[in-house]
Design a protein around this nucleic acid. Structure first.
Lengths: 223, 223
DNA sequence: CCGGTTTCAATCAATTTTGACTTTTTCAAG
DNA sequence: CTTGAAAAAGTCAAAATTGATTGAAACCGG
């Protein structure tokens, strides 16, 4: 069932030979939660069984259930882990010094990269499953709300000059969120085309309009 | 397990006393597929078991498996049924004589109503599940592609004057699709606010811009 | 009224998943 | 080197789901 070697040094085993049991335990726990997240992305939420998680983490199922007594406990930990990772990655993306001082472009790009990352897929799977699973919903809601607050705060930080013009600001935020998430979700089943680049460029343009910023001379290449 | 009366006259039982067995069978089959669709909406795809479908359809499980030999057969039929219903409803919405000759408004409104309908939720559940279920994906893909072709055709029909200006036309279409679907999906877990009405109004406005139509004097109330 | 077909109901075995329980291994401290 | 606690592995029964099989009931044509 678990043919992998008992102590396969994964990417979380890089802790120095402090050899502490507590540290090893923590390392194993993150290994498990990350395996769970990978399973969400690869197999979807409902197909993520404890067996599958243990297999992907390179542990026996019994070992996993020692760290997390039940499936839900793993899910809980995975949600927290995913949330903090997501938050950290997003913060890093928006606080990165802008390459050309183009706040709009950077903000859009940051969230666009974010929603195309596997982490967003994992969170999306959880969100969809939570729609008809009240228990999961109660676990997910705090993390989701926290992320959205952070998202909004990041937007305020990126556009400090935009204070007071609340109505258009909110509109630009909502529009961006819906367009980018809608595109990202669409791309889960469809493949990207050149047309979609035009949508991103157009979104940039409209946000600038709403912000009262000057039009960009020409749209530079998007990666 | 199935406490409901054996021959509960549901909304599909209203066929006249033609008493034919073949017709009754067809009626029962649509009853089953519609029950399956309801289950997708209410419990999600993965939790929609054969037991649950039979229960919701008011049949014994054995009776259901007589009409559809396997779970997948039910899903297949449900996808087809859902697809034709979706297509019919959408066609009706877009071909309805516009109340005030405002094509843009009508088109947006039509698709907005569509994505807020339970049928869209069901299709969405299927689409998400299909992401990690190749068998379901192969069932769903034809229906999805057919609907998208029809969607595009409907857009062309609603804006006959827009031929030739392909680039902006496609942009308007893509934008609308992403915004509306993104909003609809967001509303599956969040609740609607007044801010979202502004996004719809803004979308109307931008489509008019792209089409080169005059700005609307004032935004009438949305229902 | 009868015969055969269709529809429906109920039971059964096989499989999967889960969580509890037991046993073995690892490892740091004395 | 011994020892005891933590970690890992393996085993087990209970529950759920599925599809097959069998038996009963309704219905139509003759």
């Amino acid at each position: 069932m678990t043919p992998s070697s008992p102590s396969a040094p994964d990417d979380d085993e890089r802790s120095p030979p402090l050899g502490w049991q507590a540290q090893k335990s923590a390392s194993t726990r993150t290994q498990i939660t990350e395996a769970a997240i990978k399973c969400f992305v690869e197999y979807g939420y409902s197909r993520t069984t404890t067996t599958l998680i243990a297999e992907k983490a390179g542990l026996s199922r019994g070992a996993m259930l020692h760290h997390f007594p039940s499936r839900l406990a793993v899910v809980r930990a995975a949600v927290e882990h995913l949330h903090s990772k997501r938050l950290r990655a997003f913060r890093k993306a928006v606080t990165k010094p802008s390459t050309d001082g183009d706040h709009v472009r950077q903000g859009v790009e940051a969230y666009w990269s974010h929603v195309r990352h596997p982490m967003f897929v994992a969170f999306f799977e959880l969100a969809v499953a939570a729609r008809s699973d009240k228990e999961l919903a109660s676990i997910l809601r705090p993390a989701q709300e926290a992320f959205e607050r952070e998202w909004h705060q990041a937007a305020v930080d990126v556009f400090p000059e935009w204070r007071g013009r609340g109505e258009k600001f909110d509109l630009a935020l909502d529009l961006s969120r819906y367009v980018l998430e809608g595109m990202a979700i669409s791309f889960l089943t469809h493949k990207e085309t050149e047309r979609d680049q035009r949508v991103l460029t157009y979104l940039d343009e409209k946000i600038r309009e709403l912000a009262g910023l000057p039009k960009l001379a020409d749209a530079p290449e998007r990666k």
